[in-house]
Simulated assay, not measured.
Amino acid sequence: MPSSRGRCPLSAFVRVLRRHRRIREFAEADLLDGLDGTERSIRIRILQHLADRGISTDGLASATREGQLGHQLLDVTLSPHGAMYSLEQISQSTNISPEDVERWFRSMGRGVSTSTSVDYNDDDLRLAQLLTEYRALGIADAGLFAFARIVGRNTSTLADASKSLIQKNLDTNRDRPEIALQFARELQRFAEFQSQLLHRAVATRLRQQISQQIRADITAEHAPEAQDIAVCFADMVGFTVLGEQLTPTELGDLADRLDTLTTDLIEPPVQFVKTVGDAVMLLSPDPTRLAAVVLKIVTAAQQHGLPPIHAGIAWGTAVRSAGDWIGQPLNRASRIATIAEPREVLADSETMRRIKSAEMTIESAGTHQLKGFTGGNQLYRILLKQQKGDQSPMQDR
């Protein structure tokens, strides 16, 4: 039998041979054109790094042509590595009921997938374990989930701000993908400086959201995971003002009641994805069923004494990623919700064309400017038949 001494040089030779073969493939795909010296060496290391993570030469060529190589590099660097779990496995490992795991993740702004989908990593497992540890300290769930929602809301804001900064710099440095590595290292350093809970919550949320939102810009609409789908964001009107009048626990109780109410009213194929602060995110391949559920939530919130709910629905192509969703309809639905009046459900024209229900009335709500979207956007008001002619939503302001 050959000694380990004899196998090492052969292994090294194979690695060198594989490296040279890859470099030849990169050159033949015009991925190294116009580069020499240090720039060529850096580009080869980046391409090797991405190829080792499973990105094909054709994929690298496409990203290079579109100036998205830096985005790909940042996405790969931030993506979790190691063991992956389903919600069911996390529940079994932590002795937390699946319902409480879902509720905990939603409170943190972490998307929730089906119980058997393997979408969660070690950070998610640790995040769930923290719920067990804090419960063992005797902290009541009301306070825990109220705090979790505050953390989720603030880390979401931080991730949005960071994403905008990173996106701007990546767009400015399209020909320097190595810049993405510097951003990734800084993000990881930031996470490491947090306390135990904030480290897990911020690191998981920040890495996930920045990675997903950047990937939303580079994901082709014809990717295998892409789906045409209706997305809704519904939240409480005046929640920010209430924050100045109520304690965090009282605010958390309102959000928890909306979460519970939404969970009770959900009917397939509508899916309750997550809670973001005082907002709930829903989606469905059937916009009619989605609109019906949202109208029920708006009505039930009023009956249960919650602040008025307003909602926005948008239709478009979205991609399922690590238990969450990314894509233009999410941003569009969120923007539409912000301009809806109290107890009003607004939808874009793509949604309106797909709604088919004798139980609903659709009215023009005029043309509006949506932040982040160019031009005027025609919106439509969705009501139950018996609502037409009722008290205007404006009277609830």
Rank of each mutant, 00 (worst) to 15 (best):
M108E: 05
P98E: 10
P80D: 03
E99S: 11
E66Y: 10
D124Q: 00
L87Q: 14
S91M: 08
E102P: 04
A83L: 12
R106T: 11
R106G: 14
D124M: 02
Q72P: 07
L69D: 00
T114W: 07
F105G: 01
A83R: 14
S113K: 06
M84G: 07
G67D: 03
Q92T: 07
D75N: 11
R65M: 09
V112H: 01
L87S: 05
R65I: 11
D100F: 12
D124V: 01
D123T: 09
S93G: 14
S117K: 13
M108S: 11
R103C: 05
P80L: 04
G109S: 05
L74G: 05
Q92M: 13
V112A: 00
S91I: 02
D122W: 08
S107P: 05
T116F: 08
S79W: 07
M84N: 11
D124C: 06
I90P: 02
E102A: 15
S113T: 09
L125Q: 03
S79Y: 06
Q72L: 13
T116Q: 13
R65C: 08
G111R: 03
S117F: 12
E88R: 15
I96V: 14
E102R: 15
T114N: 15
S86D: 01
R126E: 09
D119K: 04
R103A: 10
T114H: 15
S107Y: 04
S91H: 04
P98S: 13
N121K: 05
T64P: 02
L69A: 01
L73R: 02
G70C: 01
S97C: 13
R65W: 03
V101C: 10
M84F: 08
T114L: 15
D75M: 10
N121S: 13
R126C: 00
V112T: 03
D75W: 06
L73G: 03
M108D: 03
S113H: 08
V101S: 02
Q72V: 06
Q68K: 08
V118F: 05
R65F: 07
D122K: 09
T77K: 10
T64S: 15
G109V: 08
G111N: 08
I96R: 04
I96A: 06
S107H: 04
